[in-house]
Design a protein around this nucleic acid. Sequence first.
DNA 1: TGAGCAAGTTAGTCACACCTAATTCAAATG
DNA 2: CATTTGAATTAGGTGTGACTAACTTGCTCA
Lengths: 240, 240
Amino acid sequence: MAEKRASAPRQSETPVRETAVDLTGPVEDYLKAIYDIERDQQAAATNEIAQRLQIAPASVSGMVRRLAEQGLLEYERYKGVKLTAAGRRAALRTIRRHRVIEAYLVQALGYSWDVVHEEAERLEHAASDDLIDRMATAIGEPSTDPHGAPIPTRDGRVDERRHRRLSELRPGQRALVTRVGDEDPELLRYLASLGLLPNATVTLDERAPFEGPLTIRVEQARYQVGTALAERVLVELLPD
Amino acid sequence: MAEKRASAPRQSETPVRETAVDLTGPVEDYLKAIYDIERDQQAAATNEIAQRLQIAPASVSGMVRRLAEQGLLEYERYKGVKLTAAGRRAALRTIRRHRVIEAYLVQALGYSWDVVHEEAERLEHAASDDLIDRMATAIGEPSTDPHGAPIPTRDGRVDERRHRRLSELRPGQRALVTRVGDEDPELLRYLASLGLLPNATVTLDERAPFEGPLTIRVEQARYQVGTALAERVLVELLPD
DNA sequence: TGAGCAAGTTAGTCACACCTAATTCAAATG
DNA sequence: CATTTGAATTAGGTGTGACTAACTTGCTCA
Ligand SMILES: [Mn+2]
Ligand SMILES: [Mn+2]
Ligand SMILES: [Mn+2]
Ligand SMILES: [Mn+2]
């Protein structure tokens, strides 16, 4: 027993500005969510954070104020939040953990890709940096997780290329699947059944009007898929 | 994101007696500690629980009352606590997790035995049953952890044989090391340097009077060790 | 320009898990 | 059998992270 708890009492009299140590699980999840939202929009809105974390917007207001006081966020009331450098560093550390864990579970323990997200969502807060590094080494330092998301390096660098969505292709265009949404096990199982995995080649044949279904080809096979699915598949355009 | 939190709000109006679901990390540690103490004494004293968990006795009083209300403990004020059947089940589940994790870290990831306890102390609360089973399978379903402690089975059975301490041997007796204390990394490193690992054969040569140092032999080599060390090494007597 | 409304914040509450200080209890001792 | 004492409990308090209900704010559109 005798483990350090995150909720230990403040006993330091000197309020020294600490270098982002020992964040709680919930805080790590906030930072991840904000990092994610910020990649699309320029600032993360309260409601969007709340939706991703499945909590009430009022709860987000409170937390966000505290994180700003700790120097992890820039926050102006009614204006949304942005990560500070410290906040971004912490977010990337957690994201690295999450993705290394997912990759390890699949490659070393035979997990299927549709269930690893949930497990990683908990383990990311409990694993030490050392464990994460050992896992990464054991599976050959992969550069992406099982869903194609890039794994940040130990020192917080990450491939930030923004890919286009399968739904944005023009008929006739061929592309490489680079990354798919990782949160919905059902979606992942369905994608697998279509062969729509990272590194697969996909061609958009037709698009029905008014956000209608797309006709795609994946390695010879033809499928019709909805836009909700096509929006969650990121691709890289292939030259003709 | 979107993970289930242990600190979710109570929204059920019906106070149904639930079947021990979803315990928090601290609660799991309490149950483990109480299980451990109960193996030696007949009931776990408040102060002893507090000491093991490194928290104030007052905190234990409060927690113990809540756990009793949840049906995990039998508790009578000023009389100490005992695990109920449900409490014991939960304790053994956590202990299984802890020990499987320790074994996996050593056997699959090359950890050294002196550091795995701390890592397991956190991971035991985050890993799913499925992950634990996969880990166990991956390393061949070991029956003990790296320190010789028996791993409970999936269905909560465990080898409860009580071993004697090295300090209790009589001069001339030969014994097999079965298990050593797992919490102190320094002790573990020292034991390793003496070769005093599970499955080693040890002979007690002499014992100095008044709790004095013991002279032991481990595979030909002769050492003098203190009683504090010898109390933390469990052995099984070998016939002459 | 000023309603109306959605987004966001504040106010007040709760459970959890810890703390210190003060008090109570039980068991041993003279 | 009263006193002492150490173990245990109670009282009161804190920080975290959630909630609902009530409010403010800022933006859009008539
Ligand atoms: Mn994921
Ligand atoms: Mn998480
Ligand atoms: Mn251990
Ligand atoms: Mn623990």
